[in-house]
Nucleic acid binder design. Structure first.
Lengths: 338, 338
DNA sequence: TTGAAAGCGTTACCAG
DNA sequence: CTGGTAACGCTTTCAA
């Protein structure tokens, strides 16, 4: 492998000049630049990442900490990851993939050994144990999620509270007065994953504000979990006319169950889902939904990291406005029937 | 951040001694080791990855090239990735995540700039355009898949030919004589993704060997694609009594369609799926299936890379034996009805 | 507009 | 069993 010195020699310039041609950090005459670039091309020179990192204290690598268990929301995780890698490449960075399993130790390992310039973390819990460590790192972090104490940490996510409000207002606007929430699995609540908490809080708040009767239920994975959740909601809230579903995995079994029970969507029961667009449109019934904008969130997280890295100002809390798309899974209840 | 020199000074030894304590590459007296380790702990020393890479020409990083489009098999991709990261960590390596979009250029970028010690590639095509580049890299690669010309390249995968044979033999053994194959999407065949080709080849071969009448059909995503594929199979092969499904996404709509048409599984039609275990067991009917052992394959890929890195012998082609698990979605046809 | 040279923090060889 | 000291390949200040 040729080094910068080989290139310099071939082009008849000093190594520093080659470096400056590469980085553009100082003006180079057109002629010199051409000679250097020719030499680079001819020799097939590629700067050594380690040497660069050592000399410049920049790795051009971002850490992405993803929950790689199988228990949750695989497609959404994947969409985040895709967005992060793509955005990182657009900023000339690569992505080191860590699993959440490694916990605090993993973060500290890659940060302390200077493998990465910044970290992006997903699946943040309300009182995430990694927060203190994150605050101590010399590298900046960007969280996808919003923990309880997020002072001084950059956070990016969908505004799940607002999303819950939007879902409920949509249904209330259609005349629904008894609405059930099918939430994520108890395990997700137990972990106090922040999107679950925030959605629930927004749901209860909007329910109070709008004077709507609601009931809420987490939902175990699998058909039986959905059946149980639905049964409980029906019991707690007789006359239930609409469901908000904040649980991607539950959607399909739910629709199957409703179908099997002869409850038509939307004629007999309305449904609003919170899920990625493609999930909403791949169900037996196209679902009115609030999109989880994984791509936007991932991209924004990377952009925030980049701003942090070059010392630009950032908004520390960026909650994206939810967008509700009507697809006909909600019916209008006539005023006389409300 | 303290450096190795700080540690050396604190422990009253030379930097090389600290290095040797860390690497264990030469004997150190218990006493010295203890002093050094105390100093390391006290100062919170972590070796600088870039400096290490520069001096040792080892990065302890593996590249994982994954197809991050949404068009295929997200959960399986995710399982591979999880397995690779976990196995890599067990060997003290980290994982740099690349997208297949970057193509040959991406591989060359990370390899030439010495960001990684080895590469693991998924979603390999029959005549994968990246192969020539891979052969030229100084870092070894491990493919998850089996391209046409794989001489001298380490390849790891499920033996999809054998899997097709196993599926067909299972059904033939139950007395089925007219069997349809629902394959991956035309796009997958068009790319000549090797698992699709190999499965189809094995299917046709076994069909001939067993003297079974078969028909095969790729399957567009979505309910309509499945409906079309099924209709075509029914037409081409009247009296069809069993289906082999090598298409994870098609499974659910297929079962729905069969149900809607009043064709019971397994009473009226038998089904064998090729998919991850958890997919097979999360369907309305538990499916007899051949597992896609993503975890084993990912782990094996990493282990192969490790062997390659430290110059141990490897088998260049490792095709894992398929395992068929009966779950009752295949019925026995009485000899009189065959 | 360019060059020279001092680091950056390790490793690993050469000595002892 | 331990120390000294060249590399490793690049960036960046200081000078010209």
């Amino acid at each position: 492998m040729p080094t910068i010195n080989d290139v310099a020699r071939a082009a008849g310039v000093s190594p520093s000049t080659v470096s400056y041609v590469l980085s553009g950090r100082r003006p180079i005459s057109a002629e010199t630049r051409a000679r250097v670039q020719a030499a680079i091309a001819e020799l097939g020179f590629h700067p050594h990442a380690g040497a660069r990192a050592l000399a410049s204290s920049k790795t051009n690598v971002l850490a992405l900490v993803a929950p790689l268990r199988v228990d949750v929301n695989v497609p959404v995780i994947m969409q985040f990851a895709t967005a992060v890698v793509t955005a990182a490449r657009a900023h000339n960075h690569d992505v080191l993939l860590l699993t959440k399993d490694e916990g605090t130790a993993g973060l500290e390992r890659v940060a302390h050994s200077t493998m990465v310039d910044a970290l992006i973390l997903m699946d943040i819990e309300r009182d995430d144990v990694r927060l203190p460590a994150i605050r101590r790192l010399k590298q900046p972090s960007v969280l996808i999620g919003l923990p309880a104490d997020h002072a001084g940490i950059a956070c990016v996510d969908l505004d799940f509270e607002a999303a819950a409000g939007a879902a409920l207002r949509h249904l209330a606007g259609h005349g629904h007065r008894r609405i059930g929430l099918i939430g994520p699995s108890p395990a997700v609540y137990r972990r106090q994953t922040t999107y679950a908490d925030r959605f629930l809080a927004g749901f209860l708040q909007a329910s109070a504000d709008l004077g709507i009767r609601t009931a809420t239920h987490p939902c175990e994975p699998g058909v039986e979990g959905v059946r149980a959740a639905l049964a409980d909601l029906d019991t707690e809230l007789p006359g239930l006319s609409a469901l908000v579903v904040h649980n991607e995995e539950a959607l399909r079994p739910l629709l199957d169950l409703l179908h099997a029970a002869g409850r038509r969507v939307p004629e007999d029961i309305s449904v609003v889902a919170i899920c990625p667009r493609d999930v909403a449109t791949s169900m037996p019934v196209d679902l009115t939904s609030i999109d989880i904008p994984a791509h936007e969130v991932g991209t924004l997280a990377v952009e925030t990291a980049m701003r942090l890295l070059d010392g630009r100002r950032v908004e520390f809390t960026r909650l994206l406005e939810p967008g509700l798309v009507e697809r006909g899974s909600c019916r209008e209840i006539a005023p006389s029937h409300r």
